Simulated assay, not measured.
Amino acid sequence: MSAERYLNHPTFGLLYRVCPAGEAQEVYATLYAQRMFFRVSHHGRGANFDSMPLLDARHLAEQNLLRERRNRSVDLPLWQKLFDQTFI
């Protein structure tokens, strides 16, 4: 897993990366409230922020954990810790 990633949202401030969500997309959460989630699509030099419900973000994060387990990734403990800190 690469180093922690952060983005600055124009309204909600600093966001941290929770997990990947497909090609050129990732799930981010607000740093302080940790209950607002966004699917961020990267394109060119910009990004598109789409808000998403907690359960959808949790589902994507669980899928990411399952994928890491299947691949026997060395990053699994890091993703598991991030999941636990964010959703439990």
Rank of each mutant, 00 (worst) to 15 (best):
L76A: 12
N64A: 11
H9G: 06
N8K: 07
Y6A: 00
Q34G: 10
Y6K: 02
I88V: 15
L66C: 11
P20S: 15
V74Q: 05
T86P: 07
P20V: 13
T86M: 10
L55A: 08
L82Q: 12
Y32F: 11
A47N: 03
N8I: 11
W79K: 15
S51T: 04
N48V: 14
R69Q: 10
D84S: 13
R67D: 05
R35T: 07
L55N: 01
L14Q: 11
F83V: 15
R39L: 12
L65K: 07
E26L: 06
E62L: 14
T86G: 10
R58F: 01
K81M: 12
D50C: 06
Q34I: 11
V27N: 04
L82G: 15
L7V: 08
Y16C: 10
K81T: 15
F87Q: 14
S2A: 11
R5C: 08
Y32Q: 08
V27H: 00
F49A: 00
R45W: 00
L7K: 01
F83D: 15
A57Y: 02
N48D: 09
R69H: 07
H59V: 13
N48G: 01
R35W: 08
G44E: 07
V74G: 02
G22Y: 03
H9M: 02
P53S: 09
F38S: 08
R69N: 02
G44M: 05
L60G: 06
Q80R: 13
W79M: 14
Y28V: 09
L78Q: 14
Q34C: 07
Y32L: 12
N48L: 10
R72H: 05
A47G: 04
A21E: 14
L78W: 02
G46Q: 07
Q80K: 11
P53M: 01
R35Q: 03
V27E: 04
G22K: 05
P10M: 04
G22I: 09
A24N: 06
F83T: 15
L66H: 09
Q85N: 15
H59I: 04
L82F: 02
T86V: 13
F83K: 10
C19S: 14
S41K: 14
L14E: 01
R72E: 03
R45V: 10
G22V: 07
A21T: 14
S41I: 12
L54A: 02
Y32R: 08
R45I: 11
D75C: 10
R45Y: 00
L66Y: 05
G46K: 08
M52G: 02
K81P: 12
N64Q: 08
R17K: 13
M52T: 05
H59P: 02
N71H: 00
N71E: 06
G44C: 03
W79S: 15
S41A: 12
L76R: 09
P53I: 06
E68K: 03
R17T: 08
R69L: 03
F37W: 00
G44H: 00
P53H: 04
